[in-house]
Simulated assay, not measured.
Amino acid sequence: MDWTADLNRTFFSHPGRGHRPTQRQPTPSLQPVGVSSGRIVRRRINRDSPPCQPAFVAPSLALGRQLRYQQRQPHTRRSDAAPGAAHQASFMTGFIQAFHQRASRALGQHFLTDQSALQAIARDTRAAPGRVVLEIGPGPGVLTHALLQTGARVVAIEKDRRAVEFLQTTFRDMIGDDASARLTVIEGDALAQPPHALLDGVGPQPWLAAGNLPYNIATAILTLFLTDAPHFERWTFMFQKEVAQRLVAQPNSKAYGSLSLAVAARTDPLLIRTLPPGAFAPPPKVDSAVVSFSVRDTPRLDPALLPTFERLARAAFSKRRKTIRNSLRYGLSHLTPEALDSLLARANVSPRSRAEQLPFDDFVALTLALHDLQAHADSNAAPPSD
């Protein structure tokens, strides 16, 4: 046993450096009092007794402690700090003071305060001069600030009137409705209209989008963007970690499902990074993740077949523990057993396989086969022409 390392952890732990400081126990406990024969000697003390100090400290440990203090980075004076970093820090301080105690639980507000994550979202969105970025739910504008620093024009839609007023005050020199304005703030609900309706006549297409989405409406907003995908080049959103894993899931995984297929039909998703609750104010109860969606130049499926594709995917995953045949029998109850067997045979899919085992191409084949069956049934049901 390396007793020097044990002693070092016991007596030289510092808050904020990866170790939890030694805390006094509410009941009598064993406290270290020294070193004897290569091990820590402990004795029982009362709760009110002062903490004991080590009777002996190896010189090498004391020297190591001194070297660690010497290796710390020197304090950066205000005059030596980069102007951009100082401005970002002051902006973050003002943001926390203004909104940390005012976040609305009803609106699902958890404001991102991690500067590196904010910069990563702005960078991955590909925001640049001459580009237009639609931001969903800017809140007090911390991500808005990062997007504006790239030189892009930002159109932000916010439902919380307090945040709208805060944005109008903070960015008053950039806000306007004309073509020269760097920032346009819209007070409204992002779910009330398709995303492209917010950007009609604003800059060239395809557009970009970003946002720290409220978790209670994140999937609904994503669905709107998937429908509006042809108008956008890419978007980068914050999700609950569990939802983010479903968005990028691959076959033969528990997270793989109908949402994974809907995303893969239109975009190439990529999980950028995960964030702990402490990266937000106030902190949520779950971990979060940033996901980037790059819209495919060539769709993997005819857009006219997307409704059929999504309906079939939902039916296939409605009974995850059952075979694909039994799942479709419940989800597509209008099909007869004979039609269902014909559907699987046309798509060359084994009826004993499960939905989570099927890759995207198998669902495309099932969609085409279902479309053909429906077209054939409709032609037989049509009344004969005179």
Rank of each mutant, 00 (worst) to 15 (best):
W3C: 14
H19K: 07
Q25K: 07
P28E: 01
L30M: 10
G34W: 01
S36W: 15
R39E: 13
R42V: 09
R44A: 12
D48E: 14
Q53V: 14
P59C: 02
Q71H: 07
A81W: 11
G84P: 05
H87R: 15
Q88D: 15
Q88K: 03
A89P: 13
F91I: 07
M92A: 08
G94M: 07
G94V: 09
F99T: 15
R102C: 12
A106F: 02
L112A: 05
T113I: 13
Q115G: 04
S116E: 14
A117I: 06
Q119G: 13
R126G: 12
R131E: 09
V132D: 12
V133E: 07
E135Q: 01
G139F: 10
H145I: 00
A146D: 04
Q149L: 14
V155S: 08
E158D: 11
E165L: 11
F166G: 09
Q168V: 03
R172M: 15
D173V: 08
S180N: 15
R182D: 13
G188D: 00
A190N: 02
L191M: 01
A192G: 12
P195S: 08
H196N: 13
A197M: 02
V202L: 10
G203R: 03
P206S: 04
W207S: 08
L213K: 04
N216E: 14
I217A: 04
A218R: 08
T223Y: 10
D228V: 11
F232N: 06
F232V: 10
T236I: 08
F237I: 08
F239D: 07
Q240D: 11
V243G: 06
V243A: 02
Q245R: 12
A264P: 13
T267N: 07
I272A: 00
F280M: 01
V286Y: 01
V286K: 05
A289V: 02
S292E: 13
D297V: 11
T298K: 12
L301P: 00
A304D: 12
T308E: 10
L312A: 00
L312H: 03
A315E: 09
R320C: 05
R320L: 06
T323D: 02
I324W: 08
S333D: 13
L335H: 04
D341R: 09
S350F: 06
L358C: 03
A369N: 08
L370H: 15
L370N: 13
H371A: 10
L373G: 03
S379V: 14
A381C: 05
D386W: 10
